[in-house]
Design a protein around this nucleic acid. Structure first.
Length: 631
DNA sequence: CGGTTTTCT
DNA sequence: GGAGAAAACCG
């Protein structure tokens, strides 16, 4: 491989092996051919409002929360508008700025949020609702999933050869407007399709043999932004397979972004690289509406341009500590510090992690997680509130808010339910209290309110209660449920068969508002709203319907004596059983190690005593939540 | 279980 | 800088 021969020389081999190629199938976190993408919606809340209002892209717009700005679109940025300034200053800088206040809940109106003309004058009675953005986020996520599922679907030849492989991309929702995607399996499939020479010799004996070299001398990077190569690397060198996989990844990401634009009118930016850290940094490089590719040969050059404090996890205390210890914030300078020296000033795994991370190494996996792990509803009081009475009013709103979100999440259908409810309470100092949510019976607004009230009493009883400057309620420790017998069967069937089933027994998505099922709303034309406003106001309410089980919401019934009010006992047990099986299923697949900079990562799995009966779910060493067969 | 840190809009 | 939110970590 050291000869200066022509690229098509059949004697020349790649520096990559079949083993590394195979790594793509299972989502190995160490193969140099891995490709991870990070996709980030541009100024997300601002775009949501632009879409909702039909505001053209070149009109400056900002999203307002009381007197502050929480999102600024790209048209407004040249005016010098940023998050730090207030509304008056923003108007001064840009008189034509469209200022849209976030939707709010209002005291006495239960769980119904609305966009109101006067919300910014009602900070004392209103509470911010981010529901509209969550709803958009769900739609975008679904669109991305669909795009990934259909990418290259016209050719199933390779799948036929590998009936056991799923070969689909893993998508992790990282926040309301960001996803990570491990494109490796999809790219593996494409590679075998496009380069039949890679198919041969996959017998186990040959795993460490080198691959043939790619049959190309130049790659067409389309509209991608390429990060410059490292010193001593040159564009004249023929591309390696690690370049080819990036190109394919880039093609996939472009099609995903295009789907989001065509179907929903949102632009996003993306980064592609060999791991999550690189991808994440990359996506922020060229905004808005562009994608950045960091090839392996460009990684060090790329990182050298950064302060390490901009790398995930190094933005806070840890970053400061490192800066202080080594007298620099620059990646390029920290690079000269040998590992042993890092060890003298930092905890052991922190040092190891840091050493790798500034060299572009990150083996954290993309978790197949698209669902939220906790829900919180909060309010800061200025001025502070001073009575139990006032606090209870907010609890009503919090309970309604969270209940509405639980409904979206599928509590009614028993798909998921939280096990714990927590209250945070701030006076001079802050306190919190949590209690279990009873595992039997339906969760409704009143139950949440009653539990919250119990917590409030506790918290008020055990310290200086007033004045209170901040109050919040959250639910967490979600447990997966199953909505019907079909789904449980789905659990019991393993491997290949489960896959076949998984597509057919898809239980309605609560992702979309019931109103817009076959949303064939394409062709947004910069102005004029093509029914977007309607679709935006999808759900809401679940307000004073504490009595009814709104039968209408269960269209496409889940064939089983619908139990809207709790799971019958025996069934509940079945459900735990199915859960454990699913757990086992997942374990066999992976040998994962997140490798994060922790002080002492003695991963809990603390088999909590928990005297009660409900907590029976025996040791489940799951980190990212498990995926239901139908999800 | 309760507090803290980090990240994001 | 503040408000609201979510996740992960720590002891």
């Amino acid at each position: 491989m050291s000869e200066p021969t022509e690229s098509s020389d059949p004697l020349k081999v790649s520096r990559f092996t079949y083993r590394q190629l195979q790594g793509l199938r299972q989502g190995s976190t160490t193969t140099p051919l891995r490709v991870v993408a990070h996709i980030d919606l541009d100024a997300f809340y601002a775009q949501c409002e632009m879409v909702r209002l039909g505001t053209p892209r070149d009109i400056p717009l900002a999203v307002r929360q009381w007197d502050s700005l929480i999102a600024i679109n790209y048209a407004a940025r040249p005016f010098g508008i940023n998050r730090l300034i207030n509304v008056a200053e923003a108007r001064k800088l840009c008189p034509d700025l469209v200022l849209q206040h976030v939707a709010t809940f209002r005291e006495g109106e239960g769980g119904r949020w609305a966009y109101r003309e006067d919300s910014f004058r009602n900070i004392s009675t209103d509470k911010v609702s981010l529901d509209p953005y969550r709803a958009q986020s769900r739609k975008i996520l679904q669109t991305m999933k669909d795009a990934l599922a259909t990418w290259g679907a016209n050719n199933t030849e390779v799948e036929a050869q590998n009936p056991k492989q799923e070969l689909s991309a893993v998508l992790e929702k990282a926040s309301i407007d960001e996803v990570f995607i491990d494109l490796s399996p999809l790219i593996y499939r494409a590679l075998l399709q496009r380069y039949p020479e890679l198919r041969i010799a996959t017998q186990d004996e040959n795993r460490d043999a080198e691959l043939p070299i790619p049959p190309t001398t130049a790659l067409q990077w389309d509209t991608d932004c390429l990060v410059d190569l490292d010193q001593h690397e040159t564009e004249e060198d023929d591309p390696g397979w690690d370049d080819v996989v990036m190109l394919i990844g880039s093609e996939i990401v472009r099609s995903v972004r295009n789907a989001v634009w065509e179907k929903l009118s949102y632009t996003c930016s993306a980064g592609l690289g060999r791991n999550k850290m690189i991808a994440k940094l990359g996506s922020a490089c060229n905004k808005p509406n562009l994608q950045t590719v960091v090839r392996n040969r460009a990684v060090q050059n790329f990182l050298n341009g950064y302060k390490f404090t901009q790398i995930r996890m190094l933005g806070g205390k840890l970053g400061d500590q490192i800066t202080a210890a080594f007298g620099t914030e620059k990646v390029s300078e920290l690079l000269h510090v040998p590992l042993e020296q890092l060890r003298t000033r930092l905890a052991d795994h922190t040092a190891t992690w840091l050493y790798g991370i500034i060299r572009g190494e990150d083996r954290s996996e993309v978790n197949p997680r698209t669902q939220i792990k906790s829900m919180l509803s909060a309010k800061s009081f200025r001025p502070s509130i001073n009575s139990l009475d006032q606090a209870e009013k907010w609890l009503r709103i919090f309970a309604a808010d969270i209940y509405g979100r639980l409904v979206e999440d599928g509590v009614l259908e028993n798909r998921r339910r939280p096990k714990v409810i927590t209250m945070h309470y701030r006076t001079a100092q802050s306190r919190s209290r949590q209690i279990p949510i009873p595992g039997s019976g339906a969760i409704d607004e009143n139950l949440l309110y009653d539990l919250a009230n119990t917590l409030l009493r506790q918290v008020v009883a055990d310290g200086q209660a007033w004045p209170c400057s901040n109050l919040s309620l959250s639910v967490s420790s979600f447990e997966d449920g199953v909505s019907n017998n079909k789904a449980i069967e789905g659990f019991l069937i393993r491997g290949d068969q489960a896959k076949a089933l998984s597509h057919s027994s898809r239980p309605r998505d609560a992702d979309n508002s019931p109103s817009e099922q076959a949303s064939t709303e394409k062709r947004r034309k910069l102005d004029g709203d093509g029914g977007k406003i309607k679709s935006f106001f999808g759900n809401q309410s679940h307000l004073e319907d504490t009595s009814a089980d709104e039968p209408g919401s269960l269209q496409e019934p889940v064939e089983m004596d619908a139990e809207l009010d709790g799971i019958p006992r025996e069934e509940h047990d079945d459900w735990h059983f199915a859960k454990d099986l699913a757990s086992q299923d997942r374990e066999e697949a992976k040998g994962s190690q997140p490798s994060l900079p922790t002080k002492s990562s003695a991963r809990g799995t603390t088999a909590r005593g928990r005297g009660g009966r409900g907590g029976g779910s025996r040791g489940k060493p799951e980190k990212g939540q498990m995926r239901l067969a139908f999800q």
